[in-house]
Simulated scan of single mutants.
Amino acid sequence: MNSIGIVLGRFHTKEVEEMLDEARAVAARRQLRIAAEVWVPGSMEKPLAIKRLLRRDDIVGAVALGIIERGETEHGNVMGHAVISSLINLQLEFMKPVGVGILGPGINPSQIPPRTRPYAAAAVEAVADLLASA
């Protein structure tokens, strides 16, 4: 059974815990073992945590879950683009899939609840699909 790691942002803990529940369910259905669940402060810390997981021989892929909510400045947009770009680069550097289940950047609070589970599911499904096609 392939093992993956999941990195979670704790800034929106309640919502991200819902995402984690869904990620666990999809991983089990797709016969992926979750070898590590790493909580970090927010999205900026996700690339380093993902890199640490991808360096492990027992981890064949990773998933990043979290939320970058709309703010009053462009900080969230800039951060979101930097984080996504970093995650894509890590995927290519390690040749291991990284599923991105980060809501936003720029998501409004009312948009979060209906998207938590679908985004988490899609991120795990992406990793599973890439592993299956390798």
Rank of each mutant, 00 (worst) to 15 (best):
M95I: 01
A120C: 11
V7G: 01
R52I: 08
G61E: 10
A35H: 14
R24F: 01
I102R: 01
S43G: 14
M19F: 05
M95G: 06
L20T: 05
A28P: 00
M19P: 03
D21P: 01
L48K: 04
A121T: 07
G80A: 08
A126K: 06
A132G: 06
K46P: 00
E17K: 13
L103R: 04
E17C: 08
S110C: 09
G9M: 02
V124I: 12
T13H: 03
L65M: 06
A82S: 10
G71T: 08
T116E: 14
V63L: 04
A36E: 15
P118R: 11
V98K: 03
L92R: 07
A27C: 04
V124E: 06
D58L: 13
V38Y: 03
L53V: 12
G101P: 00
Q31A: 13
V124Y: 11
N89E: 15
K51G: 06
R30T: 03
V98S: 09
I107K: 06
R29W: 02
V100R: 00
S85D: 15
P105S: 09
I6P: 00
A62Q: 04
K51I: 00
Q91R: 11
R29T: 09
V26D: 03
H75P: 02
Y119G: 04
A132Q: 06
A64E: 04
V78L: 15
R56W: 05
V38Q: 13
L92W: 10
L131S: 02
L8N: 01
R33G: 06
S43I: 06
I88W: 01
V83H: 08
